[in-house]
Design a protein around this nucleic acid. Structure first.
Lengths: 114, 114
DNA sequence: CCAATATTTAAGAAAATGTCAAGATAAATT
DNA sequence: AATTTATCTTGACATTTTCTTAAATATTGG
């Protein structure tokens, strides 16, 4: 028999599966959660958020702080903006960024033990 | 002037930078944090962890629950094992997995609002 | 209009994911 | 005890995704 692999009834613990399958995580929730973590799973973005945790900062300052290029930082800021983790405030020629998601702020505080 | 781009003294807010640069996040901590989030930033692994949050499960059960192949699940379990988020317990032909990192367990509980 | 700052686009490099096939181990069968 | 079967792991490959860099394109202020 060359059918697609699958556990047979001797392996699977049906009573457990039956129970767990009654409360699956909604696909949307899975997607949402994974995406949040994905965005937080990057060295540059962690650095950016670490500094924003302490102050509202312009792209220029962030560029110096994370030791990257302006373009790269701007790129990461857009990613964070898309997930509504940070927001920008325009002042003159500059844009000041800050964390606008309190859950993420709290999460980072705990993880980074600040 | 065609040198590498860099903010000049009119853009950068030196007093802020000076202060923030005194307490940089250690590279190791950044790496560690980003890696944890990176591992959590994947649909399959979120599903696996969601189910492990509720029960110790064998690879076979997990395969059915996440609706993937045994091989793919095993690969992901290794990733989670490498970061000491889950651990395997051998029992006969089967391996039962469970979450062995209480911080991650707590984090997921909060994020998934369980 | 010019200079400074910020964003977007495009392209190339690096990394992760799933699939398939092979290997390993423990139990069951002969 | 040798063979087969069930469960799980591993390695190699192809595909896709993600990150970075560089260049082009706004936008703003003077």
């Amino acid at each position: 028999m060359e059918e697609q692999w699958q556990c047979d009834e001797f392996c699977v613990h049906n009573h457990v599966l039956d129970r767990l399958q009654k409360t699956p995580l909604p696909e949307e929730k899975i997607q949402q959660t994974a995406e949040l973590f994905k965005v937080l799973g990057d060295n540059t973005r962690i650095k950016v958020l670490y500094y924003l945790l302490q102050d509202e900062l312009c792209v220029c300052d962030l560029t110096v702080l994370v030791g990257s290029t302006q373009s790269a930082v701007s790129h990461q800021l857009r990613v964070l903006r898309n997930l509504r983790i940070v927001q920008g405030r325009k002042e003159g020629k500059q844009v000041f960024y800050s964390i606008c998601n309190e859950n993420v702020r709290q999460l980072l505080r705990e993880i980074l033990a600040i």
